[in-house]
Design a protein around this nucleic acid. Sequence first.
DNA 1: AACGACATGACAATCATTCTCACGAGCAGT
DNA 2: ACTGCTCGTGAGAATGATTGTCATGTCGTT
Lengths: 155, 155
Amino acid sequence: MTRHGSPGMEVPTPMRENRGMQRNTRQRSAILEALSRQDDFRSAQQIHEQMRADGETVGLATVYRNLQALAQSDRLDVLVGDDGETRYRQCEATGHHHHLVCRECGRTVEFLAPELEAAMSRIAREQGYTDLDHTLEVFGLCTGCEAARAEATAR
Amino acid sequence: MTRHGSPGMEVPTPMRENRGMQRNTRQRSAILEALSRQDDFRSAQQIHEQMRADGETVGLATVYRNLQALAQSDRLDVLVGDDGETRYRQCEATGHHHHLVCRECGRTVEFLAPELEAAMSRIAREQGYTDLDHTLEVFGLCTGCEAARAEATAR
DNA sequence: AACGACATGACAATCATTCTCACGAGCAGT
DNA sequence: ACTGCTCGTGAGAATGATTGTCATGTCGTT
Ligand SMILES: [Mn+2]
Ligand SMILES: [Mn+2]
Ligand SMILES: [Zn+2]
Ligand SMILES: [Zn+2]
């Protein structure tokens, strides 16, 4: 991914909110609707498949483009799996937050943690770093999957 | 990446330490040596290029395989960039820890943060999650890059 | 020195994601 | 509603990092 910065005249203030989304289209609505019926993280292809199954006609490239655009305007949460696949999920919380994800079934809990934010920020500042940012995700087994695993272990 | 779990007979205890690394080879030594001369995160291809430049003869696939194996035995730190490329780095610290990475030049500082570990763990347990794990990386501009940016802004 | 399991390397194959570009559809202005 | 200017879409090709294949080389042991 090349990182350009357009030289020359700056646009007054693009208000990064709507990049690549000036218009409302049937496809985008359908994508948001599909997303709203799921509560775990899904890949672009999974979402596309689901839509086709539901009878929607949408191109795969369109799904990719929209998910990307929606994520950039903070309307979706993004998670890059261990396998490198990017997964999206409709975000309940508004503003900066983190996730607790079941590595087995994908069940997700959103959480805020001012204490964590403060601690990370302090550590980074102590080292002279500025313009901070971070990624933080917690994984584990949810109660359901833990129970299932215990049962399997007991034969 | 498909996730199998070999059914059937379990090996006594593979001691996950040396997966795919029973032997010592010239290639692996060279890779470790190349790694030891860098202190920022590099992709498999970058490392391969550097080695070729230094006169080493090593196949790209071999570089990929070894980096992967070394990472699995915790001898390397792994970071998946925004562009999806996996980067590796020789790890100074021993044991679990995190990184503060300059998003411009890659300069990296390792840090421990028991307070963070404890807080994440507490939050997850409150939600009933077990067998915990997490990813946490902090990004920012190091003092050098911050200075460079300030200068550029002032023309 | 001989052997058998592993590791390597050249190259093909995968596969998620991005690019291309002709065509269709929002939407502002009339 | 009509026109026009864009932007968004879709089908397929292209990209590019990573992985698979398999014949051949090498390590560590006997
Ligand atoms: Mn945060
Ligand atoms: Mn940690
Ligand atoms: Zn679960
Ligand atoms: Zn820097």
